[in-house]
């Protein structure tokens, strides 16, 4: 490591000034649970670290009108314990709970999970299903952009070096809408997702009015499964329709992972995981 300077800024403005000053040489650290491994393995070699883990401005969960906003430095443990996420988005709490271990959840943050852009990031499928946006700040001001639009590949995210991810926002599910998260891992604790799915579904007059499926670990990044979504829109969500949709998903995964050693296993597994996710999402709909 060739770290020259480390900072614990007192507010967002100071973070932005440091990012602007050091540009490519600076790196934000929050929970550090991925970053410190990267430093150790020299996968990254920043000269400057800027710690945002304890910045109050970047922590917390709140309602803003019909939206829920989550500060980028909010930890998974904080998301699991907060009354808003527990009541409005139990699927998000389930995703947070599935991550790492108690020690990891105590420090790892939602912003870090997004910025690391792992294809298997646990939080991304649900956030994609919620059609979440992220708010990026720089010295000029701030802009809001859909999460889906910044995820570009494994570890690749479209955020400029002078920008700070400050918070995440999404519409809180209301009556007629359901949300679920399912993850396939090989053990209970400290499991990297083999498949993760987030499903949002809105039903009106018995028919699927809107559906958003976020997937993890079956592409080079977390993505929206638009082909599968298109199949369901406008249909009555009977068991037979869900079965057919899950077979379509299976075919999609088969084609996508054709040269992958895990392809055969994942295309079998996706059917069951998706069916469970779909039925769980429907069961959470309040009318």
């Amino acid at each position: 490591m060739a770290l020259r300077e480390v900072y614990k800024p007192k507010d967002i403005t100071e973070v932005l000034q440091l990012l602007d000053k050091y540009k490519d040489k600076g790196k934000i650290i929050a929970g550090g649970t991925d970053l410190i491994i990267d430093l150790k393995e020299r996968a990254i070699d920043p000269e400057v670290l800027i710690d945002i883990a304890t910045l109050e401005e970047l922590k917390g969960i709140a309602f803003k009108g019909s939206y829920i906003e989550i500060g980028a430095a909010t930890t998974f443990a904080e998301m699991m314990d907060h009354v808003i996420t527990k009541e409005k988005t139990p699927a998000l709490v389930k995703a947070a709970r599935s991550i790492g271990s108690p020690q990891i959840r105590n420090t790892a943050t939602i912003g870090g999970n997004i910025c690391n852009a792992s294809p298997a990031a646990d939080m991304l499928p649900v956030l994609l299903a919620l059609d979440a946006s992220i708010i990026l700040k720089d010295l000029e001001g701030e802009k809001t952009i859909l999460l889906e639009q910044v995820l570009k590949g494994k570890g690749k995210i479209d955020i400029e070096r002078n920008q700070l991810l400050s918070y995440v926002k999404f519409k809180a599910p209301v009556d007629g809408e359901g949300l679920s998260f399912e993850k396939l891992g090989f053990r209970k604790a400290l499991a990297i997702a083999k498949i993760a799915l987030g499903v949002f579904v809105e039903v009106e007059n018995n028919k699927c009015k809107e559906i958003r499926i976020g997937s993890g670990a079956i592409h080079n990044r977390a993505i929206r499964e638009s082909k599968i979504e298109d199949y369901f829109r406008g249909k009555i969500l009977s068991d037979a329709v869900i079965e057919e949709g899950s077979e379509l998903f299976q075919e999609e995964v088969r084609e996508r992972l054709i040269n992958r050693s895990s392809g055969e296993f994942k295309r079998e597994a996706i059917k069951g995981i998706f069916t469970t996710a779909m039925k769980t999402a429907l069961s959470t709909i309040k009318s």
Partner: peptide, 12 residues
């Protein structure tokens, strides 16, 4: 709260 001290930088 518990943390892994190998995953926290001293300056933090």
């Amino acid at each position: 709260i518990t943390v892994n001290s190998c995953m926290v930088m001293a300056f933090q």
